[in-house]
Design a protein around this nucleic acid. Structure first.
Lengths: 222, 222
DNA sequence: TAAAATGTTATGGCTGCCCTTATTATTCCA
DNA sequence: TGGAATAATAAGGGCAGCCATAACATTTTA
């Protein structure tokens, strides 16, 4: 077993790559933006990761996780999402806050602790934001949710998951009850990339397109 | 409020100082030994801590926590001991392992999480090793236990607490059932700084003096 | 197809925290 | 009281991970 241990910084890079999409290469600029560092620094670091066989970097094309890198990333994500469950369900912390708190804890969690935590929680399948929690072997189901902006006006949908957004957007969503399990309807789509108007529990709520991209929903059958 | 945040390294120095005794100054050499670094490095770091007002360093005399430093140290200790309780009682991890696991988590735990954890655990008064858990304001009771080597032969005692020992000593103690709450008797004291012979649950157990120093006990009343 | 946007490389610098080696100062103890 | 042990200081170094600035390469797009 290559049971190595990686720095917090490395784990954050790998997690960021995994969260950004496990298919296509990610632009270095995007990584830099998400990690709040300069593109030059991101470039440096990507080279280090490349040397360690954790990512594959095609200049001017982007960065991809290798199998090894993906394995680490999935493990980090597992740890984080388990902690999110614990913090929300057992410590009763705010839905909008558990991501950040769990992000600190994830880097300080040994494998034995991770597995004991998973058992304690009853092996949850998803985190409080609706995203899947990989199992001990790194396997997880890919969600079938659709980004909210792709839904037609008038359709009833249920929020399935929230992709991790930047800044205080989670608190913004929580205030408006846009959380997994919530049913809502698209009441109106403003022209010129304008906001969506949603109907949630009988109330009208406007939601910018950029934010709506982070909300994945499934159609209600009726 | 000076609600600053400190590096993991700084927290470890301060915690080490607090654990080594909250009275007299600690020699730099001792700190270096406990943190597994060279005395030169420890000296450097102590100067940094001094500049930040966290410790008071009297050359050739030793290092002491300032009020500010003690506050941080007590907070770190609170976090660690709460996690120890959680890891032992809820995740069912080994008594001998929870100290180290908690030590990683303690540096990644925000105040809100600490308080929520304390509430979840029911505000425990001591950690699994019998050491007091400071409350939210940093107050805690000082234990009245006596180091095992100070007890006379023949006396019945109950283990009150285990000071944190180096290396694998906790596993060694756990194997021999020397844990808080355990009743035992000093059967024999070998001459020339030789080991103690203890009677535990009808079995005889030899325990070196150096290790016994870490075991605090109270006399059984009868 | 040329300008704008983005990515890459080079250079130099910074901080935190650790290291070694060597010299000097102080304290402790026999 | 003098040598051993311990502590302090100095000088030089390393590594991780970030920064800025500048020059240059490639890709995108208008």
């Amino acid at each position: 077993m290559t049971e190595k241990t990686f720095t917090e910084s490395i784990e954050m890079y790998l997690k960021t790559l995994a969260e950004a999409g496990l298919g296509e290469p990610i632009a270095i600029g995007k990584i830099a933006e998400k990690l709040n560092i300069t593109p030059v620094s991101a470039n440096e670091m990507v080279q280090r990761l490349s040397r360690q066989g954790l990512v594959r970097h095609t200049p001017y094309k982007g960065v991809e996780l290798t199998k090894k890198g993906r394995g680490v990333a999935v493990d980090v994500i597992r740890r984080q999402r388990l902690w999110e469950c614990f913090l929300l369900e057992h410590l009763n912390l705010e839905w909008s806050q558990v991501y950040d708190f769990a992000c600190s804890l994830e880097h300080a969690t040994a494998p034995i602790v991770t597995e004991a935590l998973a058992k304690f929680l009853g092996f949850p399948k998803t985190c409080p934001h609706g995203n899947p929690i990989p199992d001990e072997n790194g396997n997880f189901e890919i969600l079938d949710g659709i980004p909210l902006p792709a839904i037609e006006v008038g359709k009833n949908v249920i929020v399935q998951s929230i992709k991790h957004p930047p800044g205080d957007v989670l608190a913004y969503l929580q205030e408006r009850n846009i959380m997994p399990g919530q049913q809502l309807q698209i009441a109106e789509v403003a022209p010129m990339e304008g906001p969506l108007t949603l109907e949630i529990n009988g109330r009208e709520v406007a939601l910018g397109l950029n934010i709506a991209e982070f909300v994945n929903v499934t159609l209600c059958e009726e």
